Each structure stands twice: as C-alpha cells, then as structure tokens.
Amino acid sequence: MLDVFGDYSARDPLTALARAARSCPYQEPAENGGLYALGSEDVRRLLLSRDVWSERSTDQRLASMDEQDAARRRALKRFLAHWPVFSDAAYHDRIRRVTVRLLRGTVTPETLSACARWADRRLAGTDGEPVDWLRDVARPMALEAIVVLVGRADAARLVRLGGAVMDELATARIDMARIDRALAAVEELRAWLETARSDPPTPLTARLGALWDDPAYGPESATALLTQIVTGAYDPTTTALCVVGEHVDSDILARIPLPSVREEVLRIATPFRFASRYARRPITVGPYRLDEGERINLCLATANLDPEQFPEPLRIRDRGNASRNLSFGAGKHYCPGAPLARAVVEVLLESMRKSGVHFRVEHVEREPELPMLRYRSLTGRLVPAAWTDR
C-alpha cells in the first residue's frame, strides 16, 4: 500500500513509489475519495480516454463542513475550474489554444543564455565550500523562466503568490488555513494583472491583458491562466533542477547523452505526482467499477517508475531520446510549458558537463506531502570528476 498521507520530508518517496508501481496496481479510496491507479498502462490509457475528464464533480467532503468553510472551499474550486489543467469540454479546448499561443516563443536564446551564465557562475570557484543547491542554483535558474514570462520586477512576488496556491494543491486533505492563503494570493494575483495590463512588461502579460478584456474569458480566466503559467513554470522546473543535483553525477554525464539524462531527470522528478479524473459514464478499471462522476487518481509518479515500462526504474539510464514518461501528462492535457522546463534542465546539465563537476549531497529535506515533489533543503559540495572515487 502506498501511504498517500505520509510525511516524506525526511525520507525519499521514490522507493515507496517504485514498490507500489511493481506490486500494487490499484488502491481503494482513501479519506480524500477516489480509486488510485498506479500502473503505467492504466495511467496512460486513462489520460487518453474519453471516458474520463478533468472537470471536478461535487466534493462529498463539503457536506461535513460548516457553511462558511464550505463556501471558501467552493470559491477556490470555482477559480481552479478556470485553469486549463482542471477544465474540459469546449472551455478547455478554447483556453488551451490560448495557452499554447501565449507560450509560443518563450524558449528564447536570451533566456537560455541567462540560465547558462547563472549555472556557470555557481558551478565555478567554490573551493570546496558548502553549496545550497536549492537556493543558489535551482530557484534562481527557475526564476529566469518566470522573468521571461512576466518581467523581472515582479517575478519573485508572483512566484511567492503562486506558491500559496500550490501549497493548497499539494495537500491531499482539506486544510482551511491553506485555502485561505490561496484565496488571498489569488486576489493579489488578480490585482497585479489588472494593473500590469495597462503597461505590460512582457508580451505574455499583454496577451493576458487582452484576455482580461475579452468577454469570452474575462478577469477570472486571465488570472487563472496567469497563476497556472507561473506555478507550472516555476515549481516543476525548480524540482527537476534539484533532482539533477541529487541524482546526476559526473559518470552519468560522461556515459549518457544529455537529452536522455534530461528525460530521466524529468521521469524521476514527476513534480506533480497525481492527476485526478472523473468518470463521464460508468466505466471499469481493472476489477473496479466507477459510476458517473466518481473520481480516479492517476499516479503519474508510479507510472514513471513501473519496471514493465522502465526497467531498473530507480537508475538513470540511456533509454533513447524518445520521451515515454508521463511527467507532463498525455493527450489534450499535455503541459504546453514542457519545452521551457526541458530547455532549462538541459542548460544545467550542459553546464555541469562542461565544468566537470557534480553535486555531492550532504543534506536533503523535502516538503512532506506525496502529491507534489518540492524541496525544502538541498545542501552539499561541488565535486570535480577526478575526485568522485575518493
């Protein structure tokens, strides 16, 4: 059994996820509701199936809450319903096309050069001093991706606000304090966009401003899209860059082509480990039957560690350049920001290979929740390739 509600801050969840992928294809509903599908074949099939979709059904847990708490929970759910990742049907098709257009051209040579300069600077001249990989490498490089989207002046602020929304999404339980912080952050994000659209700092901001004024979308959709883009670009990229520091050494960089290493990093990272779907009609999943509206939780992380699909799943291997992992989803909900995340990760790998160093971890601490991989601390030292066997 996979402990969905366990505290994983001090233990690596990869072992538990890989064990579940190997031996536990299904897990019955927990307190948050919904069957869990853990095997790669089922997860991929359901991501592509027309029998399920992302639009959320009624949350039965609201019935046990007082009306004030339930109202705040419903308000956040209404906002999230405007995100492309949590929507479906005609609205999803329209907002996804908008999102793809918004993100087109964001992987610029200038962005990659800025990331490369930062990586080169941090990987050189440390003289064996302790390095805070999360603070000094992963977060600044991921922030450069946000800068190209919303401008440098407010990038860090928007990341902080988006982080409050991600905190609520990261927990499998209803947590009213997190809900309140998320709602407050949404109001600040809405206020920022309302102001920024009059003098947009970037092309993406200008397009979001046009979406705000478009009666077919309006302020709610524009704010939702801003929030999903910021959080979707920053958090997964930060996580993947931390996985590079924790798992990639000089031997891997010497033996395996960088595109393959990049895909393995993203496979192991799987920043968002679950994708919820809801039955559009009665369906059968393995030995289980789901009625219309019932929830199934697709575990992308266990699918990416399924030995039937990825032999020796905990090892970084050359599995070819063709990506078969599900870190960015699949089908019509495939993440349109994937090229940006891939590009930033490959910049760091190239800088590490060029500098001839890798990161030797001395202390790692993660956020406790299983649904998302996020780091609290990742410290250690940079080690030249010639020292790796000492």
Rank of each mutant, 00 (worst) to 15 (best):
P336N: 07
L46W: 10
L112V: 05
R45P: 03
V100D: 03
A206T: 06
P109G: 06
P287W: 02
F359H: 01
A116R: 15
D69C: 09
G356V: 09
S351Q: 01
F272N: 06
D251S: 11
L35D: 00
E292A: 15
A63E: 12
A155M: 06
G293M: 07
Q68Y: 13
R160N: 12
E168Q: 15
R280I: 09
R96D: 01
D12T: 10
D318Q: 07
S276A: 10
D306Y: 05
T270G: 06
D88S: 14
F5M: 11
V383L: 15
L17P: 02
R360Y: 13
V361W: 02
E187K: 14
V85M: 13
R160A: 15
R342L: 14
T270Y: 00
R262N: 11
D167M: 03
Q228M: 09
D249M: 08
T202H: 04
Y91D: 09
G163N: 13
E28V: 12
G218S: 02
A116P: 03
R78H: 11
P257M: 03
D306C: 07
I179D: 04
S40W: 05
M352S: 04
T99Q: 10
N297F: 00
W192I: 04
R280N: 12
A75F: 07
T270P: 08
L14N: 07
D51W: 04
R56E: 00
A20C: 15
E246R: 11
E365R: 14
G125I: 00
Y36L: 14
L62W: 02
S113L: 08
V345L: 02
A142H: 05
R97P: 00
A210M: 10
I256G: 04
A191F: 05
R281E: 15
Y91N: 05
T58Y: 05
I283M: 09
E187M: 11
Y375D: 07
L161D: 03
Y217M: 01
P271I: 02
S57A: 11
L349A: 09
A75N: 03
G293P: 07
E369W: 10
V285K: 00
L326G: 04
L225V: 06
P371T: 03
L46P: 03
R117F: 06
P287H: 05
D154R: 04
R181N: 10
V243H: 00
R390T: 12
G286K: 12
R255E: 13
G320V: 03
V100R: 07
L169P: 02
N297D: 08
E67V: 13
K354H: 14
